[in-house]
């Protein structure tokens, strides 16, 4: 069954992973800019990374018939150094015209620090200035609830940000409702241990009637599974979901959100 991986860090993945995803029905992968498992020492490292996810990964994906899109930012894990963050943000505008760039992301918070919040607000301004979609990373574990609230407040405080053009990713049972209630989209990340399992994801989808929600695997440098989305689709089938309802979450919802960029075509 065709599906979209709307949040996958393919720079961490091999061609074999691309092949497995294609065999499982993946037609489109979207790659937000994030941490690479280590701190980069200068803006030059990010320049090369932005080239990698806007020029090189689309070519790798195309070898398996998969379309590749990307998002740009300096992620919150590396945003404590505000001088570095300013240098990296200055690089972003020249990349926004690339045909596969959908918006600003994944921005957000990691440890909920003042500097992270400052850089988040600057990214929100950048998105407003260039009329871009926004993809938001929420903090992990004990920091998620507080960070999600700080992020929602920062987005709500900006007069030009429209909630329907923002997705708040990595929601769990204690954050999904606050995100949807304020008109934002929500992303559920299927990730061993630190985020969400297929059954919990399906529980949340059922209680929120699967509107304004997508699911993704993240499939980054950590212990993660690039097939987490199709595995969850299989669980949905076992739990009585119709083919159409599964497609609605795994394909139609990501299309609906990302088409707002004006560049995304399924």
């Amino acid at each position: 069954m065709p599906y979209i991986e709307p949040h996958g860090h393919m720079v961490s993945r091999t061609m074999y992973d691309y092949e497995k995803m294609a065999l499982a029905g993946c037609e489109i992968i979207c790659e937000p800019a994030f941490w690479a498992g280590f701190d980069r020492s200068s803006a030059d490292g990010f320049f090369d990374y932005f080239r990698q996810i806007t020029e090189y990964e689309p070519k790798r994906a195309a070898r398996f018939g998969i379309k590749h899109f990307s998002w740009l930012c300096i992620n919150p894990k590396e945003a404590e150094d505000t001088m570095l963050a300013d240098d990296v943000m200055a690089l972003i505008p020249e990349f926004l015209n690339k045909p596969n760039v959908l918006g600003i992301g994944e921005i957000g918070l990691n440890k909920n620090s003042r500097n992270e919040l400052l850089i988040l607000e600057k990214h929100i301004q950048l998105a407003a200035d260039y009329d871009q979609l926004v993809l938001v990373h929420t903090p992990h574990l004990e920091d998620k609830r507080k960070g999600t609230q700080l992020i929602l407040d920062a987005l709500k405080n900006h007069p030009k940000i429209k909630p329907e053009r923002v997705i708040i990713d990595h929601v769990e049972e204690h954050t999904i409702q606050m995100v949807l209630d304020q008109g934002f989209w929500a992303g559920i990340t299927l990730y061993p241990e630190s985020k969400c399992t297929p059954h919990r994801a399906i529980d949340m989808l059922e209680s929120c009637q699967a509107e304004r929600i997508w699911m993704n695997s993240a499939c980054d440098w950590g212990v993660s599974d690039p097939l987490a989305v199709p595995k969850t689709m299989l669980e949905m089938k076992r739990r009585g979901w119709t083919k159409e309802s599964i497609q609605h979450v795994a394909f139609d919802n990501p299309v609906k959100f990302m088409q707002q960029s004006g560049k995304f075509t399924p």
Partner: peptide, 24 residues
């Protein structure tokens, strides 16, 4: 999930680590 969560509401002065522990 809420029982494991940081209940405070203000940003911390500085991030001194990158990871999270899982409980507060």
């Amino acid at each position: 999930l809420l029982s494991f969560s940081d209940p405070s509401t203000e940003p911390i002065p500085k991030a001194t680590m990158q990871g999270a522990i899982g409980a507060h």
